[in-house]
């Protein structure tokens, strides 16, 4: 049962949030992007790391903000969170293999 720090509301239980998946993959900003391969990569391909993962959670039962979360997929530890428009660096995975 994670505690996720919403940048706007503070520490909240995970049940208030909805998972939104990988936040490191790039959604084409440009809706006009014509290259199917760019969209293909965005829609289907994942790094799926075992270790630190940058991901989206929406504070659905709260302020409804999309929050960036740096979470370890192996230990479930959360290293930090940030608002959608703020940068968030991932710690270096010990499990780099």
């Amino acid at each position: 049962m994670f505690v996720i720090r919403c940048p706007y509301c503070g520490d909240r239980d995970m049940v208030e949030f909805t998972y939104g998946g990988d936040a490191s993959k790039k959604h084409p900003d440009n809706i006009e992007e014509p290259d199917q391969a760019v969209w293909q990569a965005h829609v289907y391909e994942r790094d799926n790391p075992r270790g630190w993962h940058l991901e989206w959670w929406q504070h659905t039962s709260g302020c409804r903000s999309w929050v960036k979360v740096a979470r370890n997929t192996l230990t479930h530890e959360i290293a930090g969170t940030a608002a959608a428009d703020e940068p968030l660096a991932l710690p270096v995975s010990e499990d780099a293999s």
Partner: peptide, 10 residues
């Protein structure tokens, strides 16, 4: 829609 507005096209 919230996702697009907050993260892709702010």
């Amino acid at each position: 829609m919230e996702f697009y507005l907050q993260t892709v096209w702010p």
